[in-house]
């Protein structure tokens, strides 16, 4: 069987992947998961803190002066 045929069969799940390939795949998935988790977490936390702490008043900005 050529490497290409082997790849096609793996793609179609017709051939069980080797242990090394499974490990590599899982490691890759974990990396991807962590990367996207950190990204989404950063965005959501910033949004959450923004809505808690920001001044959401619709009043026009007033620059304080003493007189």
């Amino acid at each position: 069987m050529s490497v290409r045929q082997s790849t096609d069969l793996q793609k179609n799940n017709a051939l069980p992947e080797s242990a090394e390939a499974a490990q590599a795949r899982k490691a890759h998935e974990r990396r991807e998961f962590r990367k996207w988790l950190l990204l989404f977490l950063a965005v959501l936390m910033v949004l959450c803190l923004y809505f808690i702490l920001a001044d959401l008043s619709t009043a026009p900005r007033f620059v304080y002066s003493q007189f």
């Binding site: 998935e29 991807e32 996207w36």
Partner: peptide, 15 residues
Amino acid sequence: QTIPRRTGTARIRAF
């Protein structure tokens, strides 16, 4: 060896 890239699933789970 090929590594199936299931990025879409990982992204959804991460979200």
